[in-house]
Amino acid sequence: MKPTASEWLVRLAGWCLGGVFVYAGVLKVTDPWAFADSVASFRLLPAVLINPVALILPVLEIILGVALIAGVKRSVGAGMLGVLCVLFAAALGQALVRGIEVDCGCFGGGAPSTARTVWALLRDIGLGLLAWWVWHRGRRAANEPVA
């Protein structure tokens, strides 16, 4: 069966989303120290959890991103990335509300800044919406009877 135009659109969205997360994950995997400092700057996790999160999260981003690019379990991957986006939004949002200057660390370490945190939050919401759309389309396609 030839993929339809909308199927191609979902694939394209999956590739973009997957690419962004693979890129983000690779940057973090190469410097876990910097990412651990970023995680710590959010002042959410106790010291025992910071480094495990700094080691595991980037790998999860890469695995889900690769799955999305390859089109393997696309809607599961998109769904899980969507959940990550919600968690990231919560972390960024609490920092803004509490007035903590965080170093997002989204795409490698940088300098803490409120303006960059707002921008990171908007970017994260955009990615989250894209993930939700890919997940939603995948689910709908699965529920439709095969023509």
Binding site: P32, P52, L55, I56, L57, P58, V59, L60, I63
Partner: peptide, 10 residues
């Protein structure tokens, strides 16, 4: 898998 790779790879 990401837990194993993340902690093991480290």
């Amino acid at each position: 898998a990401s837990v194993l790779i993340g902690l093991g790879g480290n």
